[in-house]
Amino acid sequence: MIVILFRILILIAIALLMYTVYQYYRNPMRKLRIAKTRDEFFLLDELQNSKKNVQFVYKGCLFEGEKYVGTTEDSFEVVNIHVYTPEPDDLRGITRDDLYFLEKELLIRYPYAKIEWKHPINKLILTPVKE
C-alpha cells in the first residue's frame, strides 16, 4: 500500500515539475528579458486590459507606457500613452528615428493614442509624427 502511494506521489511530483517548466517557457517577462539581452524589438501588452502598462524593449532599452482611456467619436479607447524608461542609462545609442519607429509601432496597436515621451526622452523629440 505504501509503495503504491509513493508511486502516485512521484507521478504527481513529475507532473508538477513539467507544468512548472512549461509555465517558465511561456512567461512573457522571460521573453522580454531575452529580447533585451539580444537587442531586439519585443512588445509586451494586453490590448484588452487598459489598466496594464505596455512594456517594450528596443536596442537593449526597456520602455514602459502608461495607458489612459478616453473617449473618441464612437467609443472609449486608449487616447494617451505616457512612455518612460525606468533605466535612463540604457538610452545610450537610441536615435530620433528609433523613437519614431517605436511611436509607429504603438500607433499600429492604438490608432487613437497620443504618445507622450517623458523626461529625458522628450528632449530628443523635436517634431511630432505626421499621421
Rank of each mutant, 00 (worst) to 15 (best):
F101L: 11
I4G: 06
T72I: 06
Y112F: 11
P111Y: 00
H119Q: 06
K52Y: 09
Q23S: 08
F56W: 10
F41A: 07
L91S: 00
N80I: 13
I125N: 01
M29N: 13
I4M: 11
L91D: 00
M29E: 13
K118D: 08
E73T: 09
S75K: 08
M18D: 09
L32R: 00
M1K: 13
T95N: 14
I108E: 07
G60Q: 15
V78A: 13
M18Q: 06
L5R: 10
E73I: 10
Y25C: 03
I81F: 11
G93I: 00
K67P: 06
L102Q: 02
R26M: 09
K130E: 08
Y84E: 12
I4C: 11
N53S: 15
V3L: 14
T95P: 09
K123R: 10
E131D: 00
R96D: 15
T127Q: 07
V21R: 03
E131R: 03
V54I: 15
V78N: 03
G60D: 15
Y112I: 00
I4V: 14
T127Y: 04
Y25K: 07
G65D: 08
V83A: 13
R30N: 14
M18C: 12
R96T: 13
M1Y: 12
G70A: 06
K114P: 02
V69D: 02
K123G: 04
P86K: 10
Y110H: 08
P28Y: 03
R33E: 15
T37C: 03
L99M: 15
I125F: 04
E66L: 08
L17C: 07
I8N: 08
L11Q: 10
V3K: 04
V83E: 10
G65L: 10
I108G: 02
A15P: 01
I125C: 03
L106R: 05
Y24S: 03
K114M: 09
K118G: 02
E40Y: 07
L99S: 04
L17K: 02
P28G: 01
V3D: 14
V69N: 02
E73A: 08
Y110V: 04
L17E: 04
P88V: 13
R7I: 13
L126H: 06
F6E: 12
L62K: 09
T20M: 10
T85R: 06
T72M: 06
L126A: 03
D74I: 03
Y110S: 06
T71P: 02
E40M: 09
